[in-house]
Design a protein around this nucleic acid. Structure first.
Lengths: 249, 249
DNA sequence: GCAAGTCTTACAGAACGCGAACGGTTGGCC
DNA sequence: GGCCAACCGTTCGCGTTCTGTAAGACTTGC
């Protein structure tokens, strides 16, 4: 397997110290907890309680990253997001309420860098902030193309092909496939996948099962007996390229 | 397959050994059971019976993680949690007597890192503690591959091979084999194994016996007369590689 | 030869994964 | 607007796999 992504992740979390994060949430409790965690991790945090202030602060402070709640008083979070994107390319992490309709798809289509479903563990937020920042700093190219065997996946264009033929993957399927391609030869539990790919902190694990099944239907030659996206009984799933594995390594 | 990953910064449960956990619960029975399980998994456990002591100990001991009961005499658990957050960002797992799924959401919404409803299985607690700690250290960094003679065991991929041929091990068998490979030439009693591999403090020791047998069936050339996974009569089991064993020892 | 420890086998319950199908929502198209 | 297709998350039933335990045969040390 030749994952050409090769993000040379020589960027430690130390290099993120002092980066400015703008936190936009109208719930004081959430804002307080989240910001204290972010500060503890070395970030400089500014808070905004509504969309209008957020837009002003974004311009004034020029933060390195913005954490944006989708539900805001006044201007809607998504609207704020669109206006932000018109003016600057600052990375944005969207917070979505799982209970209500999930506009995660809309947010993602609009180009959010990551999303997290409420309620989330504050530590999870820190991890995502670090991850997105590391990515945006390290490579100026937003996302490099993943290549693996006959598969080719372009995260920016959201196009996945097998042997040149485009696979019509849905949003979820694409996200799932992207994550697996980025971490080949590693087993992930359904919970892991639900947390990282879906951005959920809790939820029905069978959701993962079903989507894995649907993804198999599209990428496996014989979906009945998967060769690449295999089940590890009692643990989870693993993606690895077939034939001769890394015995040479 | 040319995954250049191989960054051997493993974060298996081994690396969690010695981490300090502060356990806050007013029920002595619960505290005793929970702490004995946590200790058995290698954690250093301190206990506190009320909120005030908890706050003091949290400052004094600077634990790596805090398990906090929501119902406490004196200061309420949630209040303790809020005061903790003001001063430090130590991961917190909340416990509550009321056991519905909604409470988990409430706990997470309050900013806890994880949440567990009473009555909980002590094993579950250990798993959660490990999970949260591992996550706070850094996620999905592949563990280093164990190699021993013709055996090769990849903890992240959950693949074990002998001379390149994959051994289909079950979860338990894999865990057991992994532990033994990490501690070769060392004798472990059935109780040791039950504690470390299974995470149990009590239980039927024959469980270990049977699993050792099953493992032998898969890794030994002649399971009838084991050469590597040998029995030390009256003591337990030892894994050592073939050829000239420890006759010198 | 005896007792304690170990091995082997068998079994039933539990856990798990899979497939199929369903209702709900969204977004496009007439 | 209203119909239709696509997608998503959930649920249920079924077959499979795994696991712990019990019971008997066997081995070891004394």
């Amino acid at each position: 397997m030749n994952v050409s992504a090769a993000a040379p992740s020589s960027i430690g979390n130390e290099d993120l110290v002092g980066r400015r994060v703008l936190l936009v949430d109208d719930d004081p409790t959430v804002a307080e907890v989240a910001s204290s965690y972010l500060r503890a991790s070395g970030f400089v945090v500014e808070e905004a309680g509504d969309g209008f202030t957020a837009l002003q602060d974004a311009e004034r402070l020029a933060p390195d990253l913005i954490v944006l709640d989708r539900m805001l008083p006044g201007i809607d979070g998504l609207e704020v997001f669109r206006r932000l994107r018109e003016r600057m390319s600052t990375p944005v992490i969207l917070l979505t309420a799982l209970g209500s309709e999930d506009d995660r798809i809309a947010g993602l289509a609009a180009g959010a860098d990551d999303y997290l479903a409420k309620p989330f563990s504050p530590r999870e937020l820190v991890l995502r902030v670090q991850s997105v920042l590391r990515r945006s700093i390290g490579e100026f190219t937003p996302e490099s193309v993943l290549e693996c065997g006959e598969f080719r996946l372009d995260p920016s264009a959201r196009i996945a092909t097998r042997a040149g033929v485009e696979l019509s993957l849905t949003v979820r399927e694409f996200d799932l496939f992207e994550f697996l391609l980025k971490h080949p030869n590693q087993v992930f539990s359904r919970e892991d996948l639900l947390r990282t790919v879906w951005g959920w902190t809790y939820g029905d694990l069978s959701t993962v099962t079903v989507h894995v099944r649907r993804l198999r239907e599209k990428i496996e030659r014989d979906p009945r007996s998967p060769a690449m996206l295999t089940t590890v009984w009692g643990v989870g799933y693993r993606f690895s390229m077939g034939g001769v594995p890394d015995a040479v390594v």
